[in-house]
Design a protein around this nucleic acid. Structure first.
Length: 719
DNA sequence: GTGCGACGATTTTAG
DNA sequence: ATCGTCGCAC
């Protein structure tokens, strides 16, 4: 069989990785070095050349998008239907394993997945029961505590704590939260992984089975794995299976959510893999790569890697110093307009920023100029309130003991069931070890509630009952349609929200019906004996969907640096390059966190293919306060010869001396009115460099424009 | 049960 | 500034 097409388009390092014969591999894949191609070709190589059965391959990614892309590309390359391949996210794969072995790890076979919001509500519920002051101990923090320990593989009994400390209180909440989950058949995201690790750890026959099955395990974005994920990899790898690990320590930006870059070093220690570096970049110009390399070089403890390209030197990196954030946004949008006028498309451009709040000014400017745009972030389809409401009804139809779903919709739409009534149901449920659904049913039957409350609760139970019986057994779309129609959610939202918002919700519910109509149960779910409904519910939690529907439109992309990872754009703006914002204030104190910020900067820069702008503003409103800040230290880490500074024409001259003066550079911000002993009065027009090298350009009324070294100029601020 | 004002917090986020 | 939550009045 001719397999040359698998290797033809690869460079030496890529080919070496794809064809590696023995042992384990660590592929250090720099940004834009073709790592997905390597993974895809590796899979194809194993199947076509080594005749490895697709059934014995396991490929793991972090996002559904990455998994989908890999699956599609493998299918196209091999011209097969990639259905039998185990390609998926860590969570998707664990979910699949747990469905097949639910009973063995003590899970009900109707178990449902709790998303972060469900989890938050449940944690808050538990805290209220334990009468813990929420203002003193935010439920978010406790949720973080629980997830953190789960990510590290710890059950409540394995957490060290001292009596009467808040730590011990949190352990108590964790325990109680866990009890709730077990009783209601609920599994949160971390639990999917933890249970699977326990399944493989505590059931030698299962471990042996899967170790025998997965001869080849491929893992993408390894630098993002957490402790539990690495434990899972080790359990599946056993002694005999071959690991193909792809990652980039320089792109580790998720330490704050439990990712352990150290896993790369642990992998080296535990498996002694052959290391291959992919350093040839196919994305960016030489200038951009050189700049990015220089920035990341300021980090210690790197595995070491330097990107290069055969491509063009390209344009210099443009640096723009704006007077304030509004001017920054104006500048960025004007440059996007230039790009479009020159024949580029809006979707070529991406504005990247450190925090979501920064998007607003760019949105306003784009709106003003009538340029289509799309903001990443915010709620995704299955996270929207109305969708979650409808899904809660579906969950109750599927499993009447689902307490989270019960709590969510027992009084949505409002039907006269207040907090007191729900409290009584909760107490009854606790006392009898029942689910809320059971307790409510019993109380209504026994007349355990006041007349009015009783009939309201009875009405709710009847509705669920009615939905359940009215639904044709196999027709998912029919079930969703009935829920939307009979629960009165649409009318409820119409009544309490402005027309446009209610309309959007109605449209989303219609979209939910369409999603159900078009839902194809995955083959492996069917095999695992899942009902179509169960599949749909799980999928909704595991794949929350897109942020916005109009993704096909040709529009400018606005997103955080984190969301930009893995993407590329011809035209990139890194906005808000200011100390305190990027690097973020909260990351500046700790060296480890600062290094992660620098990696984020590296990630951002390497998104750019042709043209990169870096911008900062001297002042911006944060939390309603005007703040002044210095340019980001990362800007100084870019070699000056790769940068072309752009000065705003807007700022030249003394007409704007009424501007506030920046509290930096000794107060000599742009626009500041100053006096020099020899040149007289003038206005600061530009600043360059920092510390003793800082230079300042002043437009003097008499003497004209002068560049001065700030340290020697002996300038005086004029009020 | 709903509406309103006070109060507080506000980095990044996939599954 | 802006958003979510809570307590209170109706």
């Amino acid at each position: 069989m001719d397999v040359s097409h698998l290797l033809d388009e690869l460079n030496d390092a890529q080919r070496q990785a794809v064809t590696a014969e023995d042992g384990h591999l660590l592929v250090l894949a720099g940004a834009g070095s073709g790592k997905t191609r390597v993974l895809v070709h590796r899979i194809a190589w194993l199947i076509q050349v080594h005749h490895v059965s697709p059934m014995s391959l396991l490929a793991v990614t972090f996002t559904n998008k990455a998994a989908g892309e890999m699956r599609g590309r493998v299918g196209r390359l091999l011209d097969i239907r990639p259905d039998g391949l185990w390609i998926g996210t860590f969570h998707g794969i664990c979910h699949r394993l747990l469905r097949m072995h639910a009973a063995e790890v003590g899970l009900s076979d109707t178990f449902q997945i709790l998303d972060s919001e469900d989890q938050f509500r449940l944690v808050r519920r538990v805290m209220r029961e334990l009468e813990i002051d929420e203002s003193e101990h935010p439920p978010r923090q406790v949720q973080g505590f629980i997830n953190h320990h789960k990510d590290e593989g710890r059950r409540p009994g394995q957490i060290e704590h001292f009596d009467r400390s808040f730590q011990s209180r949190q352990v108590e909440i964790y325990q109680r939260y866990q009890d709730y989950c077990e009783r209601s058949g609920l599994v949160d995201f971390a639990e999917l992984l933890l249970r699977t690790v326990e399944l493989l750890r505590d059931h030698p026959e299962r471990r042996a089975h899967y170790q025998a099955r997965f001869g080849h395990i491929l893992i993408d974005e390894f630098q993002d794995t957490n402790t539990l994920q690495y434990a899972l990899v080790r359990l599946l790898a056993g002694d005999g299976n071959r690991l193909f690990v792809v990652g980039d320590d320089d792109q580790s930006i998720y330490g704050w959510r439990g990712a352990r870059v150290e896993n790369v070093a642990h992998y080296n220690r535990d498996f002694q893999p052959e290391m291959i570096r992919l350093e040839q970049n196919y994305r960016s110009t030489r200038t951009i790569l050189e700049a990015a390399n220089q920035v990341i070089n300021h980090n210690d403890d790197r595995m070491g890697k330097s990107l290069w390209t055969e491509g063009e030197q390209g344009e210099p990196i443009r640096l723009f110093s704006a007077y304030n954030a509004e001017e920054e946004a104006e500048f960025v949008i004007a440059r996007i307009q230039d790009w479009i006028v020159q024949g580029g498309r809006p979707s070529d451009g991406a504005v990247l920023y450190r925090s979501n709040a920064q998007s607003r000014l760019f949105e306003q400017a784009l709106l003003r100029e009538d340029i289509p745009y799309r903001v990443y972030g915010g709620l995704r389809f299955f996270e929207r309130a109305e969708i979650k409401d409808a899904m809660a009804y579906l969950r109750l139809m599927h499993n009447p003991h689902d307490d989270t779903a019960f709590e969510r919709v027992v009084n949505v739409p409002a039907r006269g069931i207040g907090e007191q009534t729900v409290n009584r149901i909760r107490e009854h449920a606790r006392a009898h070890g029942q689910s809320l659904g059971q307790a409510a049913t019993e109380m209504v039957a026994q007349g355990g509630l006041a007349a009015r409350a009783g009939s309201a609760v009875g009405g709710f139970l009847q509705l669920i009952d009615q939905l359940t019986t009215a639904r044709p057994e196999t027709d998912l779309a029919g079930a969703v349609r009935i829920v939307v129609k009979q629960t009165g959610l649409v009318a409820w939202y119409q009544k309490r929200e402005p027309a446009d918002r209610a309309e959007a919700r109605e449209e989303n519910l219609a979209e939910l019906v369409r999603a159900a109509e078009g839902f194809d149960q995955p083959f492996e779910d069917e095999q695992a004996g899942l009902s179509v409904m169960a599949s749909f519910l799980s999928q909704a939690a595991l794949e929350a969907g897109e942020h916005q529907a109009e993704r096909w439109e040709d529009c400018v992309q606005l997103m955080t640096l984190h969301s930009a990872k893995g993407l590329e754009f011809p035209l990139v703006f890194l906005a808000g390059m200011e100390e305190g914002l990027f690097p973020h204030q909260k990351s500046i104190e700790e060296p480890g966190r600062l290094a992660e910020e620098r990696r984020l900067c590296y990630v951002g820069m390497t998104r750019a293919m042709q043209r990169l702008y870096v911008t900062h503003a001297e002042s911006r409103q944060t939390y309603g306060q005007t703040n002044f800040s210095r340019p980001s230290r990362f800007l100084n880490e870019i070699p000056a010869e790769l940068i072309e500074s752009i000065r705003s024409s807007f700022r030249v001259g003394s007409a704007h001396s009424d501007r506030p003066v920046a509290e930096d550079a000794g107060g000599f911000g742009l626009g500041a009115a100053v006096r020099h002993s020899r040149f007289g009065f003038g206005t600061v027009v530009s600043l360059e460099g920092q510390g003793p090298n800082a230079r300042i350009q002043v437009n003097f009324e008499q003497a004209g424009s002068k560049w001065l070294v700030l340290a020697y100029a002996n300038l005086e601020l004029v009020a």
